[in-house]
Design a protein around this nucleic acid. Structure first.
Lengths: 171, 171
DNA sequence: CGGGCTTGGTTAAAGTTTGAAACAAACTTA
DNA sequence: TAAGTTTGTTTCAAACTTTAACCAAGCCCG
């Protein structure tokens, strides 16, 4: 089949998106690196843990929510553990498993970094959008995200490497 | 001043965006790594060069268009040069400068990879959006991107590290 | 029970990105 | 024009990500 190239509108949208998304992530990383000494993803790890019951989550669940690989998470948690912001514990129900737990210190650091982070997100993104656009943004990326639930694979109807299964809480 | 936290709508939009953007970038990287042996950013470098007059661009201009640091670009171009896809030449007008040039081999590789890449972009993004949403996407990220033109700096009205100046073409 | 497959998590090596110097050419200006 | 500053690019080390094993614990079924 002959390639369906992008239409001019699609090209403009794609370029605007790719460029701005990169700038936003960079700015976010820089801001958090300055004020909290960690990149955005690490902040997200703390943040996700803080919202979980007992501030704890199994590694696989955490990876799944953050949409990152287990290996990447292992590395990150090891670093955060060294910094005393997260602690690991063995899962009592499944001896293979381990749980990441946000420490009090981690909670403090998170709370200290949150205002600056939110302010940045706001100034980069929401301050520039109308309320309608905020709604559109949500719809667009919800739609895009859903594409990853059912195995969209391209040309070669391959196996889907991004889908992940779930596991019991193990609180 | 007390923090202006995100509203529930903003939170939903932010989460949908962060998650999906990550998945998209990952999928793009994986697809290009498979089919072209390079990450998305490297592909963008080739692509940008291919659209420039004489397929050449000064390092700084290239970095600016791609919204990446010069250092990152240097590393990438060094690798692409090793692979024979790009060639460097000294700038005749400004002896400090150097130009990156897409080689014929680079052009071939790019052309070979383009269809698969476009197909992926389409299946991940545009196939899931209505034409109106494509328009909204462009507007949203154009607005966001414009925020980086005038120095938006946050809380501490600091110096702006992302703004870059321009330089002569040096064709 | 006892292989053999799957799952949860880590590890090692290679590749990439970052951020702060280092350098050298170009510009400014006294 | 020498001294100081800015600009274009590279370099280096440290931090991070990826990929592909690897290992142990659960699971399945004859």
């Amino acid at each position: 089949m002959t390639t369906r190239w992008l239409t001019p509108e699609e090209q403009r949208a794609w370029r605007a998106y790719i460029g701005a998304a990169l700038l936003v992530e960079d700015a976010l990383d820089r801001q958090l690196q300055q004020e909290a000494g960690m990149p955005h993803m690490y902040y997200s790890i703390l943040s996700t843990l803080s919202e979980s019951p007992e501030r704890r989550l199994r590694m696989t669940d955490l990876a799944e929510r953050l949409k990152i690989t287990r290996s990447r998470l292992t590395y990150a948690v090891t670093r955060l553990e060294k910094d005393g912001l997260v602690r690991r514990e063995d899962c009592r129900w499944d001896k293979r498993g381990s749980v990441a737990i946000l420490t009090d210190e981690g909670m403090r650091v998170l709370e200290g970094a949150a205002p600056g982070h939110v302010e940045t997100v706001r100034s980069l993104l929401f301050d520039r959008l109308t309320p309608e656009q905020v709604g559109q943004l949500e719809e667009i990326f919800t739609a895009v995200g859903e594409g990853f639930q059912g195995g969209t694979a391209q040309a070669t109807g391959d196996d889907v490497p991004w889908r992940r299964r779930s596991s019991k809480s193990c609180s």
